[in-house]
Design a protein around this nucleic acid. Structure first.
Length: 270
DNA sequence: AAACTGAGCAACCGCGCACTG
DNA sequence: CCAGTGCGCGGTTGCTCAGTT
């Protein structure tokens, strides 16, 4: 009694568990408009019945436009293994070396795939040698190889028919990451997003009634429309909701959820 | 077809650090 | 210097779903 720290929020007054599309939408919209200067006050200001930490986690791990989803490439896995040798369980450190990947995701991959694989490979010495040696410098070299390839791809791909991108979906995603980086930078600069709070009513009525958003101040909305469209496109790619999508790894339940979210987004921008 | 099991992953928890007054 | 506050991180939990029996 009296020991330990007070909980970050009143657990009885906040919603827990999986996020609904509506909550996602609220969070995205809020951060797009105001940034995330203060996670603790964000739920109150955004009207979310969530703990600030939960909002932060949801944003960082799932909703951030630059977050890369889907399977890890062999190259990425190799990098994780190498960086883990260098840094240990410093997942955020490792994540910082892998653009678009989150510490949580990397941690999960490590515990579910890579750890087991390492156990196996240490049991069978015939395992092919890794392309990079094991010390830190070499691990950094691995990254350099990747970023070089990445920038080459970016530089050479003026259009969307780049064959390298088609060959390697991860390079394609890395390209998309750089494409949307500027949007994220905007989001991370609250000073650029400062909007007087008397506009709140519009925003919240807009969020609460996405079908009746025609009354929202269009001037301001149009400024963001291109960025939102870009982001939307990006989300479609990331969620595997494009018409000619070949990705099979998304579960149907998640697709339903994602597509309903997407519909709400579309209502937002049209 | 139903029950069981294990893998994968999103989300939560609590600690430590940095910052501020 | 100290206490309070907020954030970030790493560990852990628990739900969902696919594979197996």
């Amino acid at each position: 009694m009296g020991k330990g720290r007070a909980p970050c929020c009143d657990k009885t007054k906040v919603k827990r568990g999986p996020w609904s599309p509506e909550e996602d939408l609220k969070l995205i919209s809020f951060i797009q408009k105001f940034g995330h200067e203060n996670w603790r006050s964000l739920p109150k200001q955004s009207g979310l019945l969530r703990c600030g930490k939960s909002c932060r986690l949801r944003w960082i791990n799932y909703l951030r436009p630059d977050v890369k989803r889907g399977n890890f490439s062999a190259e990425e896995e190799e990098m994780i293994i190498k960086f883990h040798q260098s840094y240990g369980n410093k997942w955020s450190k490792i994540a910082s070396k892998l653009p678009g990947r989150t510490d949580n995701e990397i941690k999960n991959v490590w515990h579910t795939h890579l750890k087991k694989r390492l156990v196996k490979s240490s049991a069978s010495p015939d395992e092919p040698a890794s392309p990079c040696s094991s010390d830190k410098t070499q691990a950094e070299d691995c990254l350099n190889i990747k970023t070089t390839r990445d920038s080459t791809t970016s530089a050479s791909s003026g259009g969307s028919n780049n064959s390298n991108q088609e060959d390697d979906p991860n390079i394609s995603l890395m390209f998309e990451y750089s494409q949307f980086n500027d949007i994220i930078e905007e989001v991370d600069k609250p000073d650029l997003l400062e909007i007087p709070f008397d506009s709140d009513l519009d925003i919240w009525s807009f969020l609460d009634a996405p079908n009746e958003n025609s009354s929202v101040s269009r001037g301001e909305e149009e400024c963001d429309e291109d960025e939102v469209k870009k982001w939307l496109k990006h989300l479609e790619n990331e969620l595997g909701l494009e018409e000619d999508d070949n990705h099979q790894h998304h579960k149907e339940g998640a697709q339903d959820k994602d597509s309903s979210l997407l519909k709400t987004y579309e209502l937002m921008i049209h």
